[in-house]
Design a protein around this nucleic acid. Structure first.
Length: 359
DNA sequence: TCTGGGGTCCTAGGACCC
DNA sequence: TCTGGGGTCCTAGGACCC
């Protein structure tokens, strides 16, 4: 059996650990530039505030309803995430850290799923202050579904285990395709056009059809929904393959020189990250785009991939390449709203290890 | 005025080689 | 009519995730 532990409205919960006055209050957390709402408490959700909503559109509403509004503090969230993960590892070392607020682990036959889930939930809350919900099922994808139920049905008290195929079937019949883990908006729209609206319908489709019409990944998702484990369980967190720094600019930018400054800063910061991780970048991608949200203005987006002559973490080299790429994709006369630099740093091996360079 | 940032995996197609 | 075929590596782009 697979167990998925998912922290409840994680960013809000982190803030509450350090400011208990926020308990029971409606709270929202804003994205980097205070651009949009990236997390909200149950109380805020109950007011009808949607996830991802642009802050400026909701500012007055939030004020009127006395919603606490906080800028995000990723250093804090990273810290608490680490504590939650470490707590879990003391009870079960076979953990797969899936994201900042989710962790998978496997359960042996002998354990009572519900009792184990309750035990973990209580320990994490007591040791870290973070509330979690727990889903338990025969596959990771089904554990996701169970976790959703655990959050939704108050009577379950945060722990939901799928212990029979009847129970699984019943849940999949009411699960819309767009809420299946691994099926996004694009695929879900496509499926609906074909008359497939629920997870139960989806999993019963022909294998060849799923593979050809969607993807091999979607096929694996179907198997998982049928109860056949088809996703890997990575106990060892794989090394990152790429590092991204990208930002929406506060104001639209027209001039190349301004963009050059910004892109150079991103590139320089990435070399710091590389050296911290003791990695070398083999290539770099720089991208640039105008706003998605201005249908009347001309849209332009472009990206360029450049490979270094040899893997590097040397700031001047990376900055020079980033600038060179930028100059090639830059077009006069557009209002640029977002840009970024991605460096790809392949998994570690002996020859690619970073060693001190005069920098 | 103002709409997030950081990731993964898969595939099709081109370049190159024998 | 038909112009070699197969393997491998790389990249761009699309789909998805939190």
């Amino acid at each position: 059996m697979y167990v998925l532990i998912d922290c409840d409205h994680f960013y809000v919960s982190c803030e509450r650990v350090f400011n208990p006055k926020l308990n029971g209050q409606p709270v929202v957390i804003l994205s980097n530039n205070d651009g949009s709402i990236v997390d909200r408490s149950n109380e805020a959700k109950a007011l009808g505030i949607p996830m991802g909503a642009p802050y400026f559109q909701w500012r007055d509403f939030l004020k009127r309803h006395h919603v606490a509004v906080l800028s995000s503090n990723y250093a804090l969230y990273g810290d608490l995430s680490f504590q939650v993960m470490r707590t879990l590892e003391t009870f079960n070392p076979d953990c797969e850290i899936y994201s900042i607020d989710e962790i998978f682990l496997t359960l042996s036959e002998n354990d009572d799923p519900i009792a184990f889930g309750r035990f973990l939930k209580e320990k994490i809350k007591r040791w870290t202050g973070i509330p979690v919900s727990i889903g338990i099922a025969p596959t990771k994808t089904l554990a996701k579904v169970a976790n959703r139920q655990a959050k939704k049905l108050y009577s379950l008290d945060g722990v939901c285990a799928f212990l029979s195929s009847e129970q699984i079937e019943k849940n999949l019949e009411t699960l819309p395709t767009e809420d299946i883990w691994g099926i996004g908006r694009r695929f879900s729209n496509f499926l609906q056009k074909k008359g497939i609206y629920t997870a139960a319908q989806f999993k019963n489709q022909d294998d060849h059809w799923i593979r050809n019409a969607l993807s091999t990944k979607a096929l694996r998702t179907a198997w998982e929904l049928r109860g056949i484990p088809s996703l890997e369980f990575d106990e060892m967190r794989p090394n990152k393959h790429s590092i991204v720094i990208s930002r929406s600019f506060e104001h639209p930018i027209i001039k190349l020189e301004t963009l050059e400054e910004i892109i150079s800063t991103y590139a320089a910061r990435e070399t710091e990250k590389l050296r911290q991780a003791k990695r070398l970048a083999s290539s770099l991608q720089v991208f640039l785009m105008t706003s998605f949200h201005k249908p009347r203005e001309p849209f332009y987006a472009n990206a360029l991939h450049l490979t270094f002559s040899e893997p590097t973490a040397y700031t001047p080299t990376v900055v020079a390449y980033a600038k060179m790429g930028l100059q090639k994709i830059f077009r006069e006369g557009y209002f640029y709203k977002k840009g970024g630099v991605i460096v790809t740093a392949p998994p570690l091996n002996n020859t690619m290890c970073y060693t001190e360079t005069p920098d």
